[in-house]
Amino acid sequence: MSALLEASGLALRFGAVPALDDVSLEVFPGEVVAIVGESGSGKTTLLRVLSGMMRPEAGEVRYRDPEGGLHLVHDMGEAAQRRLHRTDWGFVHQNPRDGLRMRVSAGGNIGERLMAVGARHYGQIRAEADEWLRRVEIDPARIDGMPALFSGGMQQRLQIARTLVTRPRLVFMDEPTGGLDVSVQARLLDMIRALVADLGLAVVIVTHDIAAARLLAHRLLVMRRGQVVEHGLTDRVLDDPQHEYTQLLVASVLAA
């Protein structure tokens, strides 16, 4: 099987601070890859570079389309990149307000991606929105409700529904459970895990929550000061950390 997304030799500096230092990464279809590390380690920057939102100073990111053709993400042009972002790809922001249109109803939020790719049948769009609200455990009666009136957890679930409605192959998630309380986090993680398995999604997820990474991810990358210090299967990395920073990270997790 060939990789869906391949990145090699990525480098980016913010002034004197190296945000990415020779980072390479492969994501295979149906695989969940977690990027963990402390604040400022370059996790989110890596996600932004991988998804084409930011251009690296060196290195390249290649994406394989469903027909098997390889594309350089940063050289494909804005129109092609946008098309990718609303069909094959999805991006779930840490703050749902960045990913949702707060003044558009829940149904409209879910329907936007469908309409952007050409859906022009109101009844079908609405039925799809209804279906997705159920899947993310939001009461379908709130289809015409404004996201501003939803709780934080519901907003995040709505953002996930809106992202997955066009059945993307690859989803980028930036701390999807950040800012939610623990019980809501657990339900959200459970839901993400079920959806990922159902849809066969490939996911690149950034988190500083080791427990979330263990629950969701097949593989793990540990970042520090822009470098990948350790990577491997999640259980291997967490149960038998080799690098001293990973050891520190694993040892710092609070046991309830």
Partner: peptide, 13 residues
């Protein structure tokens, strides 16, 4: 797509 979202919202409301 955004213009159609506006039309969708009108019909929903």
């Amino acid at each position: 797509g955004l213009m159609h979202v506006k039309l969708y919202e009108d019909i929903a409301r």
